[in-house]
Design a protein around this nucleic acid. Structure first.
Lengths: 209, 209
DNA sequence: ATATGTGAAGATGTTCACAGCT
DNA sequence: AGCTGTGAACATCTTCACATAT
């Protein structure tokens, strides 16, 4: 069964909430309570969870531990993903230390840059290679995922190198630009300036003039 | 007329593309060509642009300069937004220097942190205040927008301070947590770990087990 | 001939409302 | 009585198909 992207997005949030509730020693939680805490409608919570079978108890709610384990398995990976981080500027450096990147689901295994001062060094314990060697290095190291924190002008060249490697399957790009990639390569974009523009657009109350 | 969020998101992309085309001296572009370059269907491009009147020429396409000016006005702000950046860690620092933040539509006017080594200093030319003084400082400086680059555990407290100020209207949060805000305050979230989880989920091919 | 603008159809996502368990 | 699970209704977003203009 195909799970929709908005559902996956909310599953991650349910997961984080349940982690918290578990620590607090809470045993049971209702869809209404979860929704309240996350700003999501209770019916949406139930619909999302129902895709994966009857996991709650009618008249009672969801057993915190059980639901936590359940979502954990849904989100689980068959392997530990090895990730290459391309572009060790401020943003790349920030991600290296980001708490979201302390996970046993993946680890940043190689850095790539073009700056001679960085290439050949270890940064936060991760070796940095030259961008030109990317296809070779990702093959050797079994890296299937790239994170791009390079300037917009350099992003497409990085995608092209990833395609050339034939082993990279997915890319998370922070570059503020469109990217073209072949069918079968999954590209997600986090575009900070787009998010800010959207916020300001709706703050001013819609289309101007 | 209400403009939908996905449309605004694409307008920003059209705008960036047209900026490029202008520099290249291109005079005319078709919806098909724009779509090709951005990975968007031509019909979607036309639909988006049609919301704002007949701006193209049938049989010809869109006049680059004219369309650029048109979208520019749609996205324009009635004022230069003053922004407060809360949390001057790696990520905050990265955003301070981010190219997306070189804009004449807004400027980062104040920093907030709790680290005594930062409070009272100027960082990249922007004064840093203590988080506790946020309500007062944003009122004095006419700051209506906050960007949160604080740990998840601190994010809600920042929102509460923003609410207390009574002048902050919008927040862009990079914290990996849900936030509750009153009606009328606009909160956008960029959740890096959620994006990564989504990518890995669909890379492995959907729900596991 | 060619490319826009748009109503209608289609696809996707959310909410409702209530049957069915506990 | 209380809360889940879910079909149906609703809302939103995208794509199609073609009339319309250059």
């Amino acid at each position: 069964m195909r799970v929709a992207e908005p559902t996956v997005e909310r599953l991650v949030q349910y997961y984080r909430l349940l982690e918290q509730l578990r620590e607090e020693g809470r045993l049971v939680v209702s869809s209404h309570q979860m929704g309240e805490m996350l700003g999501i409608k209770a019916s949406q919570v139930r619909k999302d969870l129902s895709y994966f079978g009857e996991i709650g108890k009618r008249g009672v709610g969801y057993h915190v531990d059980r639901l936590y384990g359940h979502i954990s398995r849904i989100l689980a990976s068959p392997q530990i993903w090895r990730i290459g981080l391309v572009g060790v500027g401020h943003l790349g450096y920030a991600l290296l230390g980001h708490s979201a990147f302390r996970s046993d689901k993946f680890r940043i295994d190689a850095l790539f840059d073009v700056d001679p001062a960085k290439v050949g060094q270890e940064i936060s314990g991760v070796p940095c290679f030259h961008l030109n060697d990317l296809p070779e290095v990702v093959r050797e190291r079994d890296i299937q995922v790239l994170i791009l924190t390079v300037p917009a002008s350099a992003a497409q060249a990085c995608v092209d190198k990833a395609v050339e490697s034939q082993v990279v399957k997915g890319i998370l790009s922070f570059a503020s630009t469109a990217l073209v990639a072949p069918e079968g390569m999954l590209v997600y974009r986090v575009d900070i300036s787009v998010e800010l523009e959207k916020l300001l657009f709706f703050l001013k109350g819609g289309a101007g003039v």
